[in-house]
Design a protein around this nucleic acid. Structure first.
Lengths: 212, 212
DNA sequence: AGACTTCCATATTAATTGGTCCAGAAATTA
DNA sequence: TAATTTCTGGACCAATTAATATGGAAGTCT
């Protein structure tokens, strides 16, 4: 965008990426300006503020960047060309692999990026909470679509199914950060999805109207 | 214990309780000495350090206090007089009710108490991580006991069952903090436990050898 | 060229962080 | 009462927090 004037000496995109790694690993508040500037090649405060405005503004950019890249593992949730079950399964498996990958910090930035916050940074907390709400809505929409198109039966079990999936989804962050492997997460997903299948209208493998 | 000398003017137990609420709501790092002292009745720094030693020492006491009170919802895990399923169910339902109660901050202190931490406070993070590991071990022991005494079949599904339960258990913290009601959490648990029942040797309600 | 724009380095801001120290007050024990 | 013990209030500490101000260097465009 900047046409005239002295060009910036550091790479803004790389700087965002570095900031993402820091916020992801430590969270919003514990990550200091000093760390951020250092991760961007020891740029000066003036350069930092000229480029990003403030710590909070940078964080919002980081979240956008995260959602546009790593966070795309959840895109299947809103892809209506997929069957609802396929959408859920791809989201879960994709997230599991992403969250436990070693190329970046573990877990999900949206879940753990601002979980410890003092009152003055409540806006940051709210930002991520809204994003989690969007995830919940996406999961719920998938289940409702499955019921609407006759893939799932409407029942008490399918009423609560979105919540179970969401709890599990958000729980993966804690486990991934504590070191659970991608393999184990994936196996857990396989097993969890039987909760979908037992409520399917035409069960693929185990036909049965399960009720407890 | 202090027999002679001027007695402390503030109630140490109430102070711990107040500190617990603060750490629980905000986490370790964002909670400042100023807030802590204020919550204890505006005591002086001298009184604070005489009574607790340091912020970190206080946090360790708070964690102990938490485990000895609120955390007792997990006691069934290590109560071998209960059937393994009963132990798991009581732990999950007790935690769900506790974590979503309105008398104190939502979620679990062990999960979210130090999730955002700068490198210098790694010991605090490690403390909670060890506690979560204890939980995992407890859940795993329950499932293994169930297999040993013939309540559950040994299979791939039961191999991964402890991990599913743990992911779900830790996921409740995120949901509770985001406002999920006790009722919904409880319903989710009911549904989740069908993953146990379909692997039971003598199913209580739905007899079937489910496999996918 | 020369005007203009934007950058960066250094110094500095006020506020807050966790933590220490000392003098004096208040209670207990002998 | 006297000696002892332990608390409290307030001043104070160095370090760090996010953020600004200034002045000059380094580019771009006409």
């Amino acid at each position: 965008m900047a046409r005239t004037g002295r060009p910036r000496e550091f790479d803004r995109d790389r700087a965002i990426e570095a900031a993402t790694a820091l916020f992801w690993a430590q969270g919003y508040e514990p990550t200091s300006l000093t760390q951020l500037k250092a991760s961007m090649g020891n740029i000066s405060p003036a350069s930092f503020y000229a480029a990003f405005g403030s710590k909070e503004a940078l964080f919002r950019e980081v979240v956008q960047h995260y959602l546009a890249t790593y966070g795309q593992v959840m895109a299947p949730l809103w892809d209506e060309s997929l069957s609802p079950r396929e959408a859920i399964e791809r989201t879960l498996r994709g997230s599991a692999r992403m969250q436990s990958a070693r190329a970046h910090p573990a877990g999900c930035l949206v879940v753990s990026g601002a979980s410890n916050c003092s009152p003055e940074n409540e806006p940051v907390q709210t930002l991520l909470a809204a994003e989690r709400q969007r995830t919940r809505a996406g999961i719920r929409a998938c289940v409702e679509r499955a019921i609407a198109i006759g893939e799932l039966k409407a029942s008490a079990a399918t009423d609560i199914l979105p919540d179970i999936l969401t709890i599990f989804f958000h729980g993966m962050t804690c486990e991934a950060r504590d070191g659970m492997t991608s393999k184990k997460l994936d196996a857990a997903i396989t097993s969890l999805l039987t909760l979908w299948d037992v409520n399917a209208v035409k069960p693929g493998a185990g036909k049965r109207s399960q009720k407890r």
